[in-house]
Design a protein around this nucleic acid. Structure first.
Lengths: 334, 334
DNA sequence: ATGAAAGCGCTAACAA
DNA sequence: TTGTTAGCGCTTTCAT
């Protein structure tokens, strides 16, 4: 057993052809005589030859590797997008290097090492918390933003229809007779939070319900934040019969706070969440929530990215993934 | 603005030295005259030169890229390991390509494309469901197995001390006076499940409590499986005052089933889980569970892998990460 | 301390 | 249809 890996030339020698012919066979391009092809393929399997991807990248100037930058790799929504994207691109021969980027300083370093160094052909940006992300990238480098709409058109995006989802969640409560609906929103500087709130206001307007900013609380998506938001609402004496929590973690925290004040969900207060996290139906009460098809989002984002890097003309697309409500037991008619 | 990226030769020209000298400066190796170094560094920043990683990989025969294969990228435990590993190796200039591998057929294909093709320098295998993983890999290829002990010594591993954890969970119940303790185990062919069960039996033996196989149920880690396991125990008329669920999802499902039969947790039955998933304290009742330090596990696994590929002599290490119990409200004294 | 030459394993452009 | 010749951008000898 020879420890050195065979190269294209070893195959060529064994098959009695030039290495270029071997290359043609491997890449199934250009006319190759069927007999020659057979000889080469024989030699390939005889030697157990596998093309060296790095050499190929070098010669072609493309690596078939993509980068994915996400706030973290753990949160269910991010992880779902990455998993789906990865599975999708793999079928086209691409692989994804995923990196979690907590702060902006690291971002530029990562871009340098992952993009500017030629290590990857394209970039998937999940909820880019870095506002000026564009200035770190070479012009025309293929990028897709997944999960959050970037406030600008000259980039590919795949995102949820956050406004519609926020509207639907609110409408569900309104249809159940609620008119005093509190909101536990995400951070004000995140598009998701703003858009879901916009949807909320749309729904109120449609139902001719006045908007009260005192019913709007801001949280950082954590369960603790949801808990605290309710504590603040209660201590401020706010009146509400329902809560629209902008994610499930905060919904769960909110419910916990309500229950600790002897308020029953949904009898006293209805709570609608957002995300449909895996165990959403196992909380008490089970969570009514907005389901998001993160798989589809990741898949679409991946396709968009590959299309972007395989086409010459840059052309930007904005894909919206619809959400729908999952009715469970945390909401009820007034 | 020139669109073509500068190479080492452009830098050399600008600095008036040979490209080799530039290489020396970049890699800070070999003696370089301080003045020369300054000139080169000037030229580098003037051109905005960034070394091409692919060319470097080509010339060096190493890619500074690692592969990570996991059943999926979504489950909290897997995602935590990957995130920690990725953060750890990045500091040493490495990046990780993560892939989810559902079945064995795909496994061999992935290995070919990711390892045999020279795309990566090392492999992190999380809970390898593929039993014969070794036969797909070149001998001496750097591998670390994370999360599950592989039943053999000639490989690096970083895993939880599953037996000890299983023992601790059981002991906690015993100390609270329970003697009829049911188990909802993971799949019998997974090491984690077996080891946690071993720990359970150890604890019983230490307390001179007889072991009854009728109290052992098998699940697939899902909440539904936990629910069904309890249904089966109850319909079989099994007697138990406590349940050791081998993960939190099954624990949650078990609790749901108990509650649907008007049995209170922990008053009627105590339940201890395993994992300490993010919202474990927000279920009703909040979950007593075994916390696992997946961050530490991922970090250690990553270090092990890099050590393995940077050292010439293969030498296998087995790192054990301890777990500890988190006491909440799903368990109580009998 | 620095430079020149060769080569990593492949593809691209041209020739035959 | 097939082979030859040049690189891709870097590192690694080996000279100087």
């Amino acid at each position: 057993m020879n420890k050195i890996r065979p190269t294209i030339r070893d195959v060529a020698n064994l098959a009695g052809v030039s290495h270029q012919t071997v290359s043609r066979v491997i890449n199934r391009e250009g006319r190759v005589n069927p007999e020659t092809r057979d000889k080469v393929e024989d030699a390939i399997s005889k030697l157990g030859y596998i093309p060296n991807v790095i050499a190929k990248s070098m010669a072609r100037g493309a690596t078939k590797t993509l980068a994915c930058i996400s706030p973290n790799l753990i949160d269910y929504t991010y992880a779902s997008i990455i998993d789906a994207a990865q599975a999708e691109v793999r079928q086209l021969g691409y692989y994804i290097i995923s990196v979690s980027v907590p702060d902006e300083e690291l971002f530029s370093k990562i871009i340098a090492e992952l993009v500017l160094s030629g290590r990857t052909d394209g970039l998937l940006l999940i909820n880019p918390c870095v506002h000026q992300w564009k200035k770190y990238l070479p012009q025309a480098f293929p990028v897709v933003i997944a999960g959050a709409y970037p406030f600008e058109d000259s980039v590919n995006t795949a995102s949820l229809d956050e406004i519609a989802a926020g509207r639907m969640a609110t409408q569900h409560l309104i249809e159940n007779g609620h008119r005093k609906i509190a909101v536990i929103a995400g951070p004000a500087d995140e598009y998701s939070a703003q858009a879901r709130l916009t949807g909320y206001r749309d729904a109120l307007r449609n139902a001719s319900i006045p908007y009260h900013s005192t019913l709007i609380m801001e949280g950082d998506w954590s369960a603790t934040a949801g808990y605290q938001a309710v504590e603040m609402l209660l201590s401020a004496g706010a009146e509400f019969t329902a809560i629209f929590a902008q994610n499930d973690r905060m919904a769960v925290g909110a419910i916990k706070s309500l229950q600790s004040h002897q308020m029953n969900v949904p009898e006293d207060v209805s709570v609608v969440g957002f995300d449909d996290i895996p165990l959403a139906s196992y909380f008490t009460p089970s969570l009514t929530t907005m389901q998001q098809n993160m798989d589809e989002l990741g898949k679409q984002a991946a396709r968009l990215l590959i299309r972007a890097l395989e086409q010459s003309e840059p052309e930007f697309e904005h894909i919206k993934i619809p959400s729908h409500i999952i009715l469970r037991s945390s909401t009820a008619s007034l």
